[in-house]
Amino acid sequence: MEQSGHLAIKNLTKVYERGQVVALKDLSFSVKKGEFLVVIGLSGSGKSTLLRCINRLIEPTSGSVSLDGVDVTSLPSSRMRRMRRGMGMVFQHFNLISRSTVLTNVLTGRLGYTPVWKSMAGWFSKADHELAMKSLERVGLEEKAYVRADELSGGQQQRVGIARALMQQPSLLLVDEPVSALDPATSNSIMQYFEEINQSDDITVLTSLHFLSLARRYGTRIIALKGGELVFDGLPSDIDDSRFKEIYGEEAEEVEVR
């Protein structure tokens, strides 16, 4: 295994059986520890599929994904679940359990560490509870711990999602379009949480984003997908007008999100 590759992706291909659609075509790249990697591309370009192939929420058709030298794609499902503990995920639509309290939602981040019988009864250890309150404090929501998740605003819900991912104490954070359901001002504050996590905890962040302006501002490296193929891999400053048109199509025009 190469030394620098914290996360290494090789010849990753995903074909959806039913629709005979190729979502990812022979994708290869690697990510260094501590990077803030942004994946950009049009909707349907395979960004979500890529992220979900990494923690195998979607089974890749061929190719391999390895994290810290462990081949993720060949793990049996029980080992895979342990593997997933180390990969936090934050979702576009937050994916919170809307009728449960915020605290319960955050605690579900510990499910991978909790014995099944204990979690069936809803018991989490004292340490887990403390960690949950600490994570909530980090995203500034300790006041809302016992409020039902669906009573929060969109931005607050996403922060709960972040706290839940932090509970896993991951080395890699997979973030799927974290701000596309939010307004611009909230988007920025959410992105700042990721930046802070990336820098102070040295957690690798792999996020897909819709807006190039946000990608330029927060990413240390950008890759672009188009029709499931890698069309760009480099620094944010390398994307000029012609590159942009190549990724987003001829008629696209860049919009600024502040």
């Binding site: 995920m89 359990i97 509970m167």
Partner: peptide
């Protein structure tokens, strides 16, 4: 969505 999130957190 929620079941995806639980699976992603390593839940069985």
């Amino acid at each position: 969505g929620p079941s995806e999130a639980i699976r992603a957190a390593g839940g069985n």
